[in-house]
Amino acid sequence: MNQYTVDVVIPTYQPDITFITLLERLDKQTYPINEIIIMNTEESFWKESDYPEQMNRKVFHLFKKDFDHGAVRAEAALKSKADIILFMTQDAVPKNKYLVENLIKAFDDNDVGAAYARQLPRINCKMIEAYTRNFNYPGNSCTKSLEDIEELGIKTFFCSNVCAAYRKDIYMELGGFERRTIFNEDMIYAGKMVQSGMKIAYVAEAEVIHSHNYSYIEYFKRNFDLAVSQKEHPEVFENVRSESEGIKMVRQTAHYLYKNKKSWMIVDLILQSGFKWLGYKLGKSYNKLPRELIRRCTMNQTYWEHQ
């Protein structure tokens, strides 16, 4: 395995005990981490005394009005001098001490520009969400390139900044994350990277614990924002098949529930899928909607204040 320097970037907002666990497990990784760069929103919520002092941690504060999914990460990338930048979210916890080591192995292939980890459900994760985690993050690793678009469609570009590492020189060469985006900065960049001829590695052996139990409305809003991000970047998403993968996931989840004698949960699956679909469809037509309706549909109110 090649030896690279690695920095970790974590945006935070009102971090809780999960974030402390994340830091503790990063400190125990078998692969050395050069610096942990924390981009914290709203200094008033940051209590230095909550976190044990470490020489390799740097904390930068910003106002909530200045937060942007892409810009904050792009700014952090400029602060890093490492060969590889590993982006994580404050609620993703490494399963074990081999997370970084396993991710970095993917870069032994010089054509790999990004590598992302497997996300495992939390203990309290609902059954449908747990299954869809396994659908999106299966137990087998793979590498995706431009040649896979016909078969995989938009999933070719799938890459999650919940836990994803990027080769710094390629990142800078391609311009990095969009500095203004409602959401989905990882896939927008990954799409451009694949179009440039680079590959994305999914590393199933690199595992983080991360899941959400969203309500129907939260699923609606999340998918609205997802669709907005795709609509705003036709250069990446316009000619790539996207909806068939979602249909496939719903069918397989319904079969899984039936097989496990949880048929009554299929009603929940249908409602959840309906809210996702409606949010996505409205998001794809956001430019035709009145501003007040958009504000009711989005998870990211701040984004629309600057439109």
Results as ranks from 00 to 15, higher is better:
N34H: 14
I200V: 07
K155S: 15
L146G: 03
C163S: 05
R222Y: 09
F177T: 02
M172N: 13
A190Y: 04
A82P: 01
R73D: 03
I188P: 04
A206N: 07
S80W: 01
Y131N: 09
P234C: 09
Y131S: 04
M88P: 06
K126S: 11
T181K: 03
T5E: 02
E151D: 15
R73S: 06
N223W: 01
N40Q: 09
N136I: 08
R222A: 06
M249H: 06
L174W: 12
I36H: 05
T253A: 02
R251F: 11
S196F: 13
T30H: 14
N110E: 15
K261R: 12
I37P: 03
D7G: 06
D108H: 08
G113V: 02
D225E: 02
G153Q: 04
K281Y: 06
I294Q: 02
E48R: 09
I170M: 06
N287Y: 08
D16K: 14
P138E: 07
I33L: 08
K259N: 13
D7W: 08
F63M: 11
F220Q: 00
K58A: 07
N34A: 12
T253N: 01
A76C: 07
Q272G: 11
L86K: 03
I182M: 04
E207I: 04
P138V: 09
I38K: 01
E235W: 06
S145Y: 11
I36A: 01
V6A: 10
N110M: 12
L26I: 07
